[in-house]
Write a protein that binds this DNA or RNA. Structure first.
Lengths: 106, 106
DNA sequence: CATGTTCATCGCAATTCACCGATTAATTCG
DNA sequence: CGAATTAATCGGTGAATTGCGATGAACATG
């Protein structure tokens, strides 16, 4: 995964409301879960929630499925796994990327 | 770790330049590594780099050590570990947080 | 076909972000 | 003490983000 992709995803995750939306979707995975449900669970206007949902969609974190008049949203677990791997790789790369050394002096 | 904290950290990581800075610091861990070094490695003005460094500092991802006229910067590996744990927890929570169910119908 | 529901999208305001050049504070050294 | 170096901070500009209410498209239903 590219730096830009990772940065995009991190930015999408970089807002408490969006974390809440993700968690709400995770907790409702089985039922219908449309924009209105999410809106009800938050002290925000419907248009605002829709915007946040769009950010999550663009980052590939969730998926939209039209279903009659409403849209059903669900978490993209495949992407979540990818992101976990990429993030782990990032952190690994950040831990002692020293060219070649024996061990720490003390 | 609080949602707001996580969001802050994610936002700090949500910019390619800041990812580059972190990687640069990781690769230079042993030598002196001051703002000027970072600036040289990027096509950005010194003031801009200093701003990005401030964001990383505020998020607790790096550490500053005054050293004569210059400042030495280094990655906070302790925080990195914490963040890895928190992020892992987040992703775990997002994977099937279903209240209590037997199994999927199909 | 008219009505109601759901929700994405369109302005719009306020705030924050990213970037820059210029300035200033701290420090070393002649 | 004066000159040089380093880097944080200030002030400014343009773009993006966050929030809102209003509008409009898509669809179900009477």
């Amino acid at each position: 995964m590219q730096d830009d992709d990772i940065a995009n995803i991190m930015r999408a995750l970089g807002h408490p409301v969006r974390l809440n939306i993700l968690r709400f979707l995770a907790s409702q995975q089985q039922r219908e879960c449309c924009c209105g449900d999410v809106t009800e669970s938050l002290p925000l206007a419907q248009s605002t929630v829709s915007q946040h949902i769009k950010v999550l969609l663009d980052a590939g974190l969730i998926e939209r499925k039209p279903h009659g008049t409403r849209n059903r949203y669900m978490i993209r677990h495949d992407r979540l796994a990818e992101i976990g791997t990429a993030f782990g790789g990032l952190l690994d790369g950040l831990n002692f990327q020293a060219p070649h050394k024996e061990a720490e002096p003390a």
